[in-house]
């Protein structure tokens, strides 16, 4: 297997005044071609920022302060904006969180799908034909007629389908789905998840799901990367992650998933405290203040170490955990 996407010690900072404040603290991550990975973490854990950095879309005051992003062996951080633009939407595509606002309200949906192709040099007539196929493929009924509609005439689910059509128009090798279903109804969520998963298989796309909901993607991914406060804390095959979490934070996350089949209805598990703000100075393990397993060693930051078939950043192995 070859690595399609490699992040090496990726660091993202925000400029505030004269100081730089690091938000993503050196993410190492390799995604093999054809693999499906979920990146999970709370809001502010840096997961979306990491993905924006991959797409080269960090906008002022955010900027890359170190590390490399290699897509198919090519270092994207060294590319000019022009070359990056040619890669965006072409080799690497992204589906956004909020389909309600992600389409231009003044442009017919068909034209927006066409534009995703003409921007990468597809002739207009061909783009028009492919647009109809694409709309049909993502499940938009009567594409000929609906292509002439404006976004406001569509429901959220339909708009997300159009966004998917835009993103996949150039058959990208890498798809980043950044919480694509958060803004949708649960029933529609399942349809959209199934659609993306189907298209992923069809096009052989490497896919990264960014989410804060472990339950949603558990069945769709091969591997889960857990992020906390700008660090990768665990990276493991999905089964192992659920059956034998190697990091106390992962374990706490899993415990916070409600189990509907539980008759006793115990109070929902919570993780006490809150993640450190980007302004807080963090020494040692970032999860230490909230961790039930913290020991003295946690005052120094644990590196990602191989644990079973994955990696985890914790000094205390699970068999030593107190309950």
């Amino acid at each position: 297997m070859t690595a399609l996407l490699e992040l090496a010690d990726l660091r993202v900072s925000a400029r505030s005044g004269r100081a730089d404040r690091e938000i993503v603290h050196g993410v190492d991550l390799t995604v093999e071609a054809g693999q499906t990975v979920a990146v999970v973490g709370e809001s502010g854990s840096g997961k979306s920022l990491t993905m924006l950095a991959v797409m080269g879309l960090l906008a002022d005051p955010l900027h890359l302060t170190g590390g490399a992003v290699r897509l198919g062996g090519r270092d994207l951080t060294a590319l000019s904006e022009r070359k990056l633009r040619a890669i965006r939407g072409n080799d690497a595509a992204m589906i956004y969180q909020d389909p309600m606002t992600s389409l231009n309200p003044l442009m017919r949906v068909g034209d927006q799908v066409i534009e995703a192709m003409t921007a990468h040099g597809v002739p207009k007539a061909e783009a028009g034909r492919r647009m109809l196929d694409l709309l049909a493929r993502v499940g938009i009924p009567d594409p000929k007629r609906t292509a002439r509609a404006y976004p406001h005439e569509f429901s959220g689910g339909m708009r997300q389908r159009v966004m998917i059509a835009c993103a996949l128009a150039m058959r990208p090798r890498l798809l980043i789905a950044d919480e694509p279903t958060t803004a949708l109804d649960v029933t529609i969520q399942q349809q959209i998840l199934a659609l993306i998963d189907e298209l992923r298989r069809e096009l052989g796309m490497t896919t990264i799901w960014v989410t804060h909901d472990l339950g949603v993607v558990a069945r769709l991914v091969d591997r889960v990367v857990v992020m906390y406060a700008g660090h990768v804390v665990e990276d493991a095959p999905v089964r192992q992650l659920f059956s034998a979490p190697q990091h106390p934070y992962t374990k706490a996350l899993l415990a916070a998933l409600p189990d509907p089949s539980d008759d006793d209805r115990p109070p929902l598990a919570q993780i006490p405290g809150r993640p450190p703000a980007a302004t807080d100075p963090v020494e040692g393990c970032p999860f230490r203040p909230r961790c039930s397993q913290a020991v003295d060693a946690c005052a120094t930051r644990p590196p990602l170490q191989t644990r079973m078939q994955g990696r985890a950043a914790c000094w205390v192995p699970p068999h030593e955990w107190r309950n």
Partner: peptide, 26 residues
């Protein structure tokens, strides 16, 4: 800062085109 302008950038649409076709009409 709207999502559809960001989405246009994600799709790799050139800046001049974003200005003329997405920003100006709005």
């Amino acid at each position: 800062e709207t999502d559809f302008i960001k989405a246009a950038r994600v799709l790799g649409i050139p800046t001049w085109r974003i200005l003329v076709r997405h920003l100006l009409p709005n």
